[in-house]
């Protein structure tokens, strides 16, 4: 395809998308939030069918529990040059209650915010003297799922850390910035049209209430970063590099946007 054809194809795609949005906007109904009145925020959990909700609620049917079990084994396994396990410093994993509800947090040593996955890797390299786990690797997902599980049922409670302010603002700006060939921002779908349908699929409000999630489409467990990457590809933007600060900024903003919502990790999503 040459340049002209490409731009024509992209214009057609944008036109088709705009038409699809216009049609769905008229059809879709505004959804009322379950439970609390006045709060229009809704976890993706409430937009799933009863079968998927049951799958998430039953720990013996939730496939994410396969990772959680691995995470529990990893938590107690001594490794690295220091021959230390997570449990040697932190004790029982119950000490991790609430941690997933407040991350990403500012790391004073690095002078920047780190996500929960990065925190786990920092513990590995600094304390256990072991190699860092690859992003999206089975072990890292297992550990983060096990840690996140300890905060299940708690409200999302990001700290009011002065040092994080500029990063949150950067995340918010990124959330509202148009990106990619489709020239769409996160906010245009998830703020303006959350709860409506796009091409048969429901647009969720994008609250990170259940990460890491077992996504049926992935047939496996995935992190919030993977979800963000998927959205970037969806609007036909070049995804950020794997270690880009943009992901942490977005994560920081999303957690503040979902402040007070109940953490359901590890969740199931279609």
């Amino acid at each position: 395809m040459n340049r002209r054809q490409r731009s024509a194809a992209s214009r057609t795609a944008v036109a088709a998308l705009a038409a699809a949005v216009a049609v769905t906007v008229t059809v879709a109904l505004a959804q009322t939030p379950p439970g609390t009145t006045g709060d229009a925020r809704r976890s993706g959990y409430h937009d799933m069918g009863p079968a998927l909700r049951a799958m998430q609620d039953d720990d013996s049917a939730n496939p994410a529990m396969l990772w959680v079990r691995d995470g529990e084994a990893l938590w107690n396994r001594r490794l690295g040059a220091a021959a230390k396990a997570c449990a040697d410093c932190h004790g029982s994993a119950a000490s991790m209650a609430g941690v997933a509800a407040r991350y990403p947090a500012f790391d004073a040593q690095l002078g920047r915010p780190v996500s929960l996955e990065e925190r786990i890797n920092l513990c590995r390299t600094d304390r256990q003297k072991a190699e860092a786990l690859a992003g999206g690797s089975r072990e890292l997902l297992a550990l983060s799922a096990y840690v996140a599980l300890q905060s299940r049922g708690r409200p999302i409670a990001p700290p009011d850390d002065e040092r994080l302010r500029s990063y949150v603002a950067a995340g918010e700006a990124l959330f509202k910035r148009r990106l990619g060939q489709l020239n769409l921002s996160c906010a245009q779908c998830h703020d303006d049209n959350g709860g409506r349908r796009l091409g048969g699929a429901l647009i969720p409000q994008a609250h990170p209430t259940a990460y890491p999630i077992y996504r049926l489409e992935w047939q496996g467990l995935g992190s919030l970063k993977r979800r963000l990457r998927g959205c970037l590809v969806g609007v036909r933007a070049e995804p950020f590099a794997d270690d880009a600060p943009e992901y942490v900024s977005l994560e920081l903003f999303l957690m503040r946007r979902a402040r007070g919502m109940t953490l359901e990790a590890p969740g199931v999503r279609p």
Binding site: P63, L66, R69
Partner: peptide, 27 residues
């Protein structure tokens, strides 16, 4: 491989018991 099994440890004779299993496999 990793398996999760949920089944009752005890039951009364004649009871119908449900066994739920989940196994890690790429299929």
């Amino acid at each position: 491989s990793s398996v999760l099994v949920n089944a009752p440890r005890s039951a009364r004779r004649g009871d119908v018991i449900e066994i739920k299993t989940l196994i890690l496999h790429p299929m």
